[in-house]
Write a protein that binds this DNA or RNA. Structure first.
Lengths: 221, 221
DNA sequence: CTATCATTCAAGGCATCGCTTGAATGATCT
DNA sequence: AGATCATTCAAGCGATGCCTTGAATGATAG
């Protein structure tokens, strides 16, 4: 009698999971974790075509992971709520905890799997307060301008080599990027270590920092 | 240069999500949340064929949501760790919070969407201590025997109508089943309400109760 | 060592997904 | 109202996923 409703419920849960099962959509969610965005901006950042991007966004909306609103002739998407971010983070944790393959990928990235644990956000906040750390924002400059950790310097991976001489060799450097899905910080740490600097990466990224209720500095202009 | 590793990472996360994207696998995980099981037992409980069940289990294992061990000629599967359970629960929360359709399904099940919030496990534990509540375990008797909340009565949905006269009309009844994915408790509450009893369901099921570190009674025999 | 049993592998059919292309919608601006 | 622009819809192709069937594996029992 009740096989149908039970299956229907499971189908709904499966729908939400399926929304997370395509790399393209994970990229979109990672972008949206930085803040709300229009379709075109998302397409450009992720390298998807406009139409394809739109379809993925609708699939995310069908699973209610994101919501949308109109702004003029543009449609702006954003994460529905913080639970979506939690779900993304937990998915990452489970995948990283259990998949040896992920470790191998990271090993390839940072040359000898990062032996140093990431710096927790609470620890970084404390160190920032006492000024005993250099913070590096490894995201594109437009995202940096849209909001960053107070006191952080901005440098993309391409610019990193150029600013190396200006970095102090005695203080520890903490790099962060978009969040746990993003590998910019991993790569930055690898580069800095190769040059003999004392670098670690922040646990999570700016979205998680903001979610903690910590201060975010926005450039006005 | 680094497009490949970044995509590879996302593919890994997507793999874990894809493992949760089939109702059949959610059923299997729901069963495994009760405790470790062999392939044949899982196939029987879920109604899948042996071969199909085995393939789903291997997919779950590939995503590292479950692990397996040999016991004689049987292969026993179990959830890898508590994080898997957390991920299932969070998936459910996001789906239920956001999908209007889920609400409609539940409305169909319990006849007028359950206006009473589920009883939290902490509250139930307190009420149990003072004896002001009747607890009903709405799972099959073999699962009840393998572990249940101390003081709980066991009755499947089929048996429920028969034991109705033996239930007190003044005390509140709290029903629980396998967990958030399971709808037995919803159905039991609907049945009890139709007969004028004061019934609510427990938040989560036995796996969540056990995860809290609360006492579980196992029948010896 | 052989027989037996639970589980896994392999191949096929059917459906769904993801991406592309080109047209349609819907809101703004002149 | 008509033109314009961002977004969405619709159809088609290739790839992948799920389920079934039948054979192969691998460990135990005699």
């Amino acid at each position: 009698m009740s096989i149908s409703p039970k299956l229907a419920l499971l189908e709904e849960y499966a729908l939400a999971a399926r929304a997370l099962s395509a790399p393209a959509r994970l990229m979109l969610l990672e972008q949206l974790a930085q803040g709300e965005r229009g379709v075109e901006a998302l397409a450009e950042k992720t390298g998807l075509t406009i139409a394809n991007c739109s379809q993925h966004l609708q699939q995310l909306r069908r699973a209610a992971l994101v919501t949308s609103r109109r702004d003029g002739k543009a449609v702006i998407y954003r994460l529905t709520d913080a639970k979506t971010l939690e779900l993304m983070d937990l998915l990452r944790i489970v995948a990283e905890r259990n998949l040896a393959q992920v470790e191998h990928i990271l090993r390839g990235l940072s040359g000898g799997y990062d032996p140093l644990e990431p710096v927790s956000r609470a620890v970084l906040a404390a160190r920032l307060a006492e000024g005993s750390v250099t913070v590096l924002d490894v995201r594109p400059s437009d995202e940096y301008a849209a909001g960053h950790i107070p006191g952080a310097r901005n440098a993309t991976l391409a610019q990193l080599e150029q600013i190396l001489p200006t970095l102090a060799h005695d203080a520890e450097i903490v790099a962060y990027c978009r969040g746990p899905y993003c590998v910019y910080a991993h790569q930055a740490v690898a580069t800095l270590r190769r040059h003999g600097l004392n670098a670690r990466r922040l646990e999570g990224g700016l979205p998680e920092w903001r979610e903690d209720g910590r201060p975010v500095l926005i450039d006005v202009g």
